[in-house]
Design a protein around this nucleic acid. Structure first.
Length: 431
RNA sequence: UCCGCGAUAGCUCAAUGGCAGAGCAUUCGGCUGUUAACCGAAGGGUUGCAGGUUCGAGCCCUGCUCGCGGAGCCA
């Protein structure tokens, strides 16, 4: 038998259908009961009149606890008084399984309680909307790269060494080979891929054992990292802005209803069109000083600094050419000023902070060796990476986009903990 | 790791150092168009843990635990 879902009900007006789902909420007024059904694709108000169903079914409608699973049958009609515009005149109602004392009520709850009940919180309309937008963002990412002939080449999760130092990694014992670490970036492997395939991207979970405790940090988060042979920093920025525009416009086009549920101000997203402003680190520092921020030249931008800079613009801003000392060892120096790295951070609007970090990579073997020594990294661990410079090295660039920060920005959320089904944070690894 | 704030009913929160309270949820009753429905009633408490001050502590003091917001670091 063909299954009917709430999102498709416009095709079933004046027809009798059966729907399966869960009780989202109910209201009753004597001989008429309003049962709000949830099926994962939407909400439907189902009206149970006492005379239209068996006494058993009417009694069942009365007893149902929130989130009881049920099969409900009736005629679909257009009804302006109902949320969503459609309504069912119920003729039959069967309980599949009861739900007693469901903990999440239609009233307010605190963060800790909801995070403890995350497995149930996911059922709420708001969380469903966020997860659907997250999925659309992931699809946009894959479509974007696939349409441009990138090859997906994922990096290992278990790695023998740190990408940028070992202090912030989760360590584990790896049989007789000593310590292994959960990856904090797939980038170095993506560089190997770019030398093989030209244009690649890796997409997967990454891990940071930093004791960060802010609205922008998770210990486990997803990152997409394109890497392109023969791209310089400007090409990298071109790719980043085309990429972000594509993602945002895809969500605007296909997830308008979900953005409405989240009460997102979509005019802010509509402004995300190329070209994005590109400013140098020096110009960013000027902006900070002009705004009365006591910022010392040479430091990396902090969270509040990023907000001040991004608030000057109505779309993402690309800040490039940072002091090389605050950036990673693999970033290429600016030939015009060796104190600067050919790096770029893309700051999202509205204070959402850094969503992309990228750079042109150092392609010269000797300079890279020097950098590894300066950063006191074990050279033997990077021998394979150095081989990429020994055997036909070419200029190349790439960047990493943090999925959760991107979802938080597009959805207009306070905290990244709502952007991933089950968040891993410094003080939480359950459920 | 550091700075700040907090912990009272299942949930969200009140309570001048002097009887432990409300709304929601639950149970019972009422209502034929409700929109986080509404109206009436009932049940529901080791006030995070351990000490201390006091005639008397949810409230004041000390320590601990847990959580929240932020910094640093980062995507």
């Amino acid at each position: 038998m063909q299954k009917v879902y709430i999102k498709d009900l416009s095709q079933y007006v004046d027809q009798t259908v059966s729907l399966k789902g869960w009780l989202y909420n109910k209201r009753s007024s004597g001989k008429v009961k309003f049962v709000i059904l949830r099926d994962g694709t939407g909400l439907l108000q189902c009206v149970v009149f006492k005379g239209n169903v068996t006494p058993e079914a009417f009694e069942a409608a009365d007893k149902l606890g929130q989130e009881s699973s049920l099969e409900i049958t009736g005629k679909i009609k257009i009804e302006s008084r109902a949320p969503g515009g459609y309504e069912m005149d119920v003729t039959d109602l069967k309980l599949i399984a009861e739900s007693v004392d469901y903990p999440i009520t239609p009233k307010e709850h605190g963060v800790e309680f909801l995070m403890d009940k995350r497995h149930l919180w996911l059922r709420s309309q708001r969380q469903v909307a966020i997860l659907k937008i997250r999925h659309r963002i992931v699809k946009a990412i894959r479509d974007f790269f696939d349409e441009r002939d990138f090859t997906l080449m994922d990096a290992p999760i278990i790695t023998p060494s740190a990408c940028e130092g070992t202090s912030t990694l989760f360590a584990t014992d790896y049989f007789d080979l000593g310590k292994a670490y959960l990856t904090q970036s797939g980038q170095l492997y993506a560089e190997a891929g770019a030398m093989a395939l030209g244009k690649v991207y890796s997409f997967g979970p990454t891990f940071r054992a930093e004791k960060s405790k802010t609205r922008r940090h998770l210990t486990e988060f997803w990152m997409v990292e394109p890497e392109v042979a023969f791209n310089d920093l400007n090409d990298d920025m071109d790719l980043a802005e085309e990429f972000l525009e594509y993602i945002v416009q895809s969500v605007l086009k296909d997830r308008a209803e979900e953005l409405r549920i989240l009460e997102r101000d979509t005019t802010k997203l509509e402004a995300v069109k190329r070209p994005f402003p590109r400013i140098s680190y020096d110009e960013a520092v000027e902006i900070l000083h002009k705004n009365g921020i006591d910022f010392e030249y040479g430091n990396d931008l902090g969270g509040t600094d990023e907000t001040v800079v991004s608030n000057q613009f109505d779309r993402p801003v690309m800040v490039h050419r940072y002091p090389s000392e605050v950036k990673a060892f693999y970033m290429k120096r600016d030939p015009e000023n060796p104190k600067l790295a050919l790096a770029v951070d893309v700051l999202a609007p509205e204070g959402y902070g850094e969503i992309i970090g990228g750079s042109q990579r150092e392609d010269n073997l000797d300079l890279l060796l020097e950098r590894i020594e300066q950063h006191q990294l074990p050279q033997e661990a990077f021998e394979w990476y150095l081989d990429l410079r020994r055997f036909g090295s070419v200029p190349h660039s790439g960047f990493g986009l943090g999925i959760e920060r991107t979802v938080a920005w597009i959805c207009g959320l306070e905290h990244v903990r709502e952007t991933i089904p089950f968040a891993r944070m410094i003080y939480r690894n359950t459920p």
